[in-house]
Design a protein around this nucleic acid. Sequence first.
DNA 1: CTTTGCACCTGTTGGC
DNA 2: TGCCAACAGGTGCAAA
Length: 271
Amino acid sequence: MPELPEVETARRGIAPHVQGRRVAAVIVRDRRLRWPIPPALSRELPGQTIVNVTRRAKYLLFHTAGGTLIIHLGMSGSLRVVPCATPPAKWDHLDIALDNGKCLRLRDPRRFGAALWTRADPARHALLKDLGPEPFGPDFTPEYLYAITRGRKLKLRDLLLNTRVVAGVGNIYANEALFAAGLRPRRAAGQTTRADCARLVTAVRETLKRAIAAGGTTLRDFRNADGLPGYFQQTLMVYGRTGEPCRQCGAPVRAVRLGQRSAFYCPRCQR
DNA sequence: CTTTGCACCTGTTGGC
DNA sequence: TGCCAACAGGTGCAAA
């Protein structure tokens, strides 16, 4: 479920429910996430008021005066706001109980996600300090991308997945952005022109923007807490469409294995 | 320094 | 229908 657009959608859905609320309790049912949920979270978060919720890459940051709750949804995580009395499901590992009888509930079957606590500036946290520019930020420019790719042999798909290059682009949108830019996933990053980089920057931004807009349609239903997977599926141009006709030219979409994950492209529209 | 591959864990899917 | 292997939206880290 969580790529950047979903994380952003989750942030927008959750923020109104938690902003300005005091944390009444922290309930840890299973601390075995990617890193164990730290005892300091249970000690220091209760009593704090959540000032606001921001996002950096795919990390959600819940800011309080005493510190910051950092949540990552990993591969299978999801967040919901439910009445505290709602019986937890099997994979509901963490509740942040609020002062209004509701709680922020983290579910994560694969447990690749994380819930951490830091008292310092979260931007300097080990997991965040080396992240590259936000896709929508002012530093993610064609010139930046051109400069950072000179002399590099890694493939464009892997370039976009590299969080030091650009923060928060996952496999789906890396592939979709490359389609939008007309560039093949296996192209060496160093073999791009300024024009290629310009198209890629625009493609990444537009692709993510459209996905967030599509996620926005689920925002209204957020309170219903229904599972809402696959809402942007109909707009995917290449991802998961092996053998199906390219929506632009009709040529069959190809899949290749890059590393351990699949890449998809149209052999005619992408060079 | 750059690139590659593994590891973490569990649910779902597709082929036989 | 049942079983098993392959695969899945992430990413830090070790090794090459």
